[in-house]
Nucleic acid binder design. Structure first.
Lengths: 122, 122
DNA sequence: CAATAATATATCATATTTGACATATTATCA
DNA sequence: TGATAATATGTCAAATATGATATATTATTG
C-alpha cells in the first residue's frame, strides 16, 4: 500500500544513466536461457514502477498512432508542438527524460480528448 | 471558492503562454443574459487547455478520494510519498506547479493501477 | 469560546524536464 | 549501390517542478 521507496526508485529511474545497463543485464540473462517471468521482474522493477512505465509506454504508442494517422514525420509534428524532432523521437521511445505531462499535452494538441487518453492508458 | 478556482485556472493558463480572450463573443452573450458554458470558456481557454486542466483536476479528485478512503491526513500521505504536506495540498488543489507525473505516481503509490487511473480521467 | 489539528498558500534552493543542436543510425528509393 | 529522408541518441543551457519551510487560514474538538 505505501510505496515511498518505490517512488524514490522511480525518480532514480528517471535519471539518464541506468537504462543501458538494464538492457544489457536483461540480454545477458536471456542469452543464458533464463525465463524469470516478465521483463519487469527480470529488471527488478516493483509493480508500481511497472505500472508507471507501462502507462508511459501506452501514451507513447498512442502518440505514434496519432502521428502516423496524420501522416506526419516527427519533424513535422515537432513543429506543430513547438518542440524538436529529437524530443518527439524520445517521446515515442518512452525515454526516461520525457514526462507524462509532455505526452498528455502532445496527445491533446493532436486532437485527443480525455476519453481517448483514458482509453489509450487502460 | 469559485474565485479561487478561477485564479488557479488563470495561473495554469498563463503558464503555456497563449491567452487570447474572445471578449466580443462573451460580452455579446452576456448582454443577452445567457449563461455561457464553463468557466474556462469565459476565461478564454482553448479546448486544448481545458482538456488538460480537466484531466489534471480529475486526477486531483482521485487523489483526494484515495486519501480519504485510506483515512489519512495530507501530512501522513506526504510522509508515505516522501513529499510534504504543502505539496499534497497543492496536488489536491490542482495547483499549476503540480505535474501530471506527480499525480500519477502518487496515485500508483497509493495502489491505483492503469485501469483505475484511466477511469478517473475519462 | 479557545486550543489544536488539518489544510492552504507563499517562497526558495535544488532537481528534473525541455527544446535545441549535433551527430549517428536506419529506412526508402532511384 | 549511394543519395537522401526519417528516426534515434547524446549533450546542455534554460525553463519548470519539487520538497522543504514558514506561516496563514479553516475545521474540529473539548
Amino acid at each position: 500500500m505505501f510505496a515511498n521507496k518505490e517512488l524514490n526508485i522511480m525518480k532514480q529511474m528517471s535519471k539518464n544513466g541506468k537504462r543501458k545497463m538494464d538492457k544489457k543485464k536483461k540480454k545477458a540473462l536471456e542469452v543464458k536461457g533464463y525465463k524469470v517471468g516478465s521483463v519487469g521482474e527480470l529488471l527488478g522493477l516493483s509493480s508500481e514502477e511497472l505500472e508507471y512505465i507501462e502507462l508511459k509506454l501506452s501514451l507513447s504508442q498512442a502518440l505514434i498512432r496519432h502521428r502516423k494517422q496524420s501522416k506526419l514525420t516527427q519533424a513535422q509534428l515537432a513543429k506543430m508542438l513547438k518542440s524538436s524532432q529529437s524530443r518527439v523521437a524520445k517521446m515515442e521511445k518512452g525515454d526516461p527524460s520525457v514526462s507524462v505531462d509532455l505526452l498528455v499535452k502532445s496527445l491533446i494538441a493532436m486532437g485527443a480528448n480525455k476519453e481517448g487518453i483514458a482509453k489509450a492508458i487502460a
